[in-house]
């Protein structure tokens, strides 16, 4: 009895955070979503979401968030794996995070310079013989810079999962005659799924609402739900519509959580059975 009370005292700050900074803002957003510009109660915002360009925006947001997550994973997994094999792995890991502490807007301006027609990247392409390419304002530049932003968020949890991997397991698998691919598929990957899953969550969810990069790097040729919300709040001053889009974004997030959750239950059950 006593102990469980003690435990609940400890969790007060977290509970308070959920109440004040999660539930209260959500209540506010849901409340605003039922009002139009003149301050009258209405369901028009919701109707508007389904009848207009917003569905198209939703699909494109999901598609790009998917691409960003996929490429982040493809690049982050081997990186994390190789870092665990280096001599000073903690240091290398920190060196992965440090670039993310320099202001994003500045780095984005640097990317505009780097990827520009007269930038170093194009100079390289020309020297190799490929010739000048329009890199900025394309799908490529958008996904590239987004992956750049999110990569530390993907590497960290995967590194943590790989780092504690018992090398004896891998040796055992090798001794039993499994080739590298089989060892990876049957031994390494299943043991790191928890880390990978956190990585996917911290990349995919924020990627849905990316906004600044869509303008600076994609030249507004890619528009996401985040951009639309930002416009509604700041430019059009239509907080009702902005809130409505946000409500949908949150609902989508809940659905994603539900879908990925089904698997995690199994994983933790496995852990307990062990």
């Amino acid at each position: 009895m006593n102990k469980s009370r003690l435990r609940s005292i400890y969790s007060i700050p977290y509970t308070a955070w959920i109440l004040l900074f999660v539930l209260a803002p959500i209540a506010l957003i849901v409340y605003y979503s039922f009002f139009d510009l003149a301050g009258n109660f209405t369901l028009a915002n919701y109707r508007n979401f389904f009848t207009s360009v917003y569905l198209k925006l939703t699909i494109s947001s999901f598609w790009y968030a998917f691409l960003i997550t996929l490429f982040s994973l493809l690049i982050a997994y081997p990186t994390a794996y190789l870092i665990t094999k280096t001599k000073h792995k903690q240091l290398w890991l920190l060196l992965i995070i440090i670039p993310s502490w320099i202001n994003l807007l500045l780095k984005t301006y640097a990317f505009i310079g780097l990827m520009g027609l007269y930038g170093p990247l194009n100079a390289f392409l020309e020297a190799v013989g490929i010739g000048k390419q329009q890199i900025l304002f394309t799908d490529f530049s958008f996904v590239f810079v987004s992956v750049y932003i999110f990569i530390p968020f993907m590497i960290l949890p995967i590194f943590n999962a790989l780092d504690k991997l018992n090398p004896a397991l891998i040796d055992a698998s090798r001794d039993l005659g499994a080739d590298s691919w089989t060892t990876f598929r049957r031994v390494i990957w299943p043991l790191t799924t928890n880390g990978v899953k956190s990585g996917i969550q911290v990349v995919f969810i924020p990627a849905l609402s990316l906004f600044m990069i869509t303008r600076l790097i994609a030249g507004n040729k890619i528009i996401t739900l985040g951009t639309a919300i930002e416009q509604q709040f700041l430019v059009t001053q239509n907080w009702g519509m902005g809130s409505t889009i946000a409500v949908f974004l949150i609902v989508f997030m809940f659905i994603i959580m539900l879908v990925t959750k089904g698997k995690e239950k199994g994983a933790s059950d496995n852990g307990k059975a062990r």
């Binding site: 911290v202 849905l208 919300i229 709040f233 809130s243 949150i250 997030m253």
Partner: peptide, 8 residues
């Protein structure tokens, strides 16, 4: 909070 745009 991770899915909500910063403006909101």
């Amino acid at each position: 909070l991770m899915v909500s745009p910063d403006v909101i």
